[in-house]
Design a protein around this nucleic acid. Structure first.
Lengths: 331, 331
DNA sequence: CTATTATTTGTTATCGTTTTCATCAGAAAC
DNA sequence: GTTTCTGATGAAAACGATAACAAATAATAG
């Protein structure tokens, strides 16, 4: 049916071994043979069947990035970092989406178990810490952007507690005492950590925690809008709002704008992620930026190292974040 | 090293053939055997090596979606459609990014040539029509969202000429005669087609085309801002602006807002794509919505059909778009 | 009770590569 | 002129699964 290495061998009047050698540019092969094989390859339009190759070598030089969906444009930079690190070592990065379904996430990990890829990076996993811990014992798995409590897996992320702390602390430094928090009901570790940072910052500044100032919604912008409305209708209104994502913050600001609130003066806003829109949307949003590219790059570097080693590194790497100050904090 | 079907066979006291049969739940196998094999599989933690299986079956049941980058959140729905259609037939969808580099796009297509995937869908290819046409002769390739002139490939897209026409025609229906166009220097077929629609609409309504009303920029929002500024500074200002993407439109509106222009009254705005932000950003943007999910679904359905058939369908399928009317056109 | 069919099994070839090993020619060494 | 080394080659054995075929057993028919 389709052209195989045998056909090339026949056409070039050499053995399949020689063809293989030429294709993998090994040293021990004569000029003539190289010439003949290359000619035959071109003439026949041959391209090697990687299933055969990969089976024999038992490696695919591919790694799989598992994400919830491509919707969060925010993953884009992380993936670029992953691709860069991979390319340097001659690996490709494939992406697959879980659609927020842990069973489908497991199905995708099947590509790893069945050796269709050499390693996998989970960006915001839906599986439990136990499950992932277990799987990571025997397979090349890493996590990025999200850490999981009690999960013995190579992880690259930022310190979300500190990031939340820094953002809220900055608002306090601006003289604010009534700081609202808009977060999500669905608990990812990062949202938990950011909330923790929020509380610590209040504590360290002698501000009492007020549960009325916390709104639990979803990741949608609309949820931010609702959250802001709710917070603005309580007795002792907030004078600043920290949202655990830019999307939520932008939604929140939409309410504020429609309610005639002077953003950056009456109420300060702080977001998280520094998505593209956060510097397009007016007023420009102050936010926490995480080193997306670097996280992606590092996690793949470490993962590839692990694949060579028989003493896999299961550490947690924490990269530094930074505060981006714009109009919504009056900067 | 790792556990193979032989180990399972030994543990279950059956032959490898029986194990294979159980794994693929074939009919001709006894209860006892099924039981024994399943037990052995669980006990050993076996998972089959798909490289072996795929090699033998010469199919992977995977298709590759090749996109420029995951940045355009806009692809997300298309991919969901692709995944749905694929899942129905027992296929997985993998995603890979070209980083706008035609050579890398070719490298990724290598996964198809080397039989690591069974088919590929190009979403906004960087390769030329000739190249793709050639490759599509011998391989399962399809295109989605973008068509290519003189390209003999299965394609699913919308009628971008008509879409541009409809948008501009709507603006004209609102009494506008000076309609600006903000498009891109880098010519994708869709942008060419949308511009063509713009011109046809003017023509059909007896409005003379004025090249001063057309701004050529990039896909960035900032480019829209610049474009709007430029258009607003010409002698005979536009009373409406059609941008070939929502991102550009939002950028353009940013200028209009800062210049104190009354959007939806002084100047109408029309975008394209209906990205998530277009109904978050205030004022809400009127835009052209394309059936992303359906396009993704259809292209995979047709591609999978082609894979079975030896008379591949290389048609161009055009799905209907719709106008979403919001505040920026005074609706 | 034998003949026939149906069901369940195992043996073995096969998918397309890479790689080990043996061979063989030619060059270098003595 | 024999021996030793080198470099280039091919034959054949992997890699881990499936499938074609054959064989064995169980079930049914006569």
């Amino acid at each position: 049916m389709s052209i195989t290495i045998k056909d090339v061998a026949k056409a070039a009047h050499v053995s399949v071994a020689t063809v293989s050698r030429v294709l993998n540019n090994k040293s021990n092969v004569s000029e003539d043979a190289v010439e003949a094989v290359n000619q035959a390859v071109k003439a026949l339009g041959y391209s090697p069947n990687f299933l055969g190759r990969d089976l024999r070598k038992s490696e695919t030089r591919r790694i799989l990035a598992i994400i919830a969906s491509t919707e969060q444009s925010f993953y884009s930079e992380v993936l670029r970092g992953m691709e860069e690190a991979a390319a340097i070592k001659g690996y490709d990065v494939l992406i697959a989406t879980t659609r927020d379904d842990p069973r489908h996430e497991m199905h995708l990990l099947g590509m790893l178990f069945s050796r269709s890829v050499d390693g996998a990076v989970l960006l915001g996993p839906k599986l439990s810490a136990e499950e992932i811990s277990g799987l990571a014992q025997n397979h090349n798995i890493a996590m990025c952007l999200e850490r999981l409590e009690n999960c013995n897996v190579l992880t690259v992320t930022i310190d979300n507690v500190k990031a939340g702390y820094d953002a809220v602390n900055y608002l306090i430094g601006k003289g604010r005492r009534r700081i609202g928090l808009i977060t999500t009901k669905q608990r990812s570790q990062s949202s938990i950590d950011r909330e923790k940072g929020y509380k610590h910052a209040l504590e360290d500044n002698g501000i009492e925690y007020d549960e009325n100032l916390v709104y639990y919604g979803s990741y949608e912008a609309e949820s931010g809008t609702k959250g802001c409305e709710a917070l603005m209708k309580i007795e002792n209104k907030p004078d600043a709002i920290f949202a655990i994502s830019d999307m939520i913050a932008i939604g929140a600001m939409n309410y504020a704008l429609s309610a005639g609130i002077n953003i950056g003066k009456d109420v300060l806003f702080f977001g998280f992620d520094d998505i593209q829109y956060s510097h397009i949307f007016v007023p420009h949003l102050s936010t926490v930026r995480q080193p997306c590219f670097m996280q992606g790059k590092l996690v793949v570097e470490k993962l590839l190292e692990n694949m060579k080693s028989d003493e896999p590194d299961r550490s947690l790497y924490t990269l530094p974040h930074s505060l981006i100050l714009r109009e919504t904090t009056g900067d």
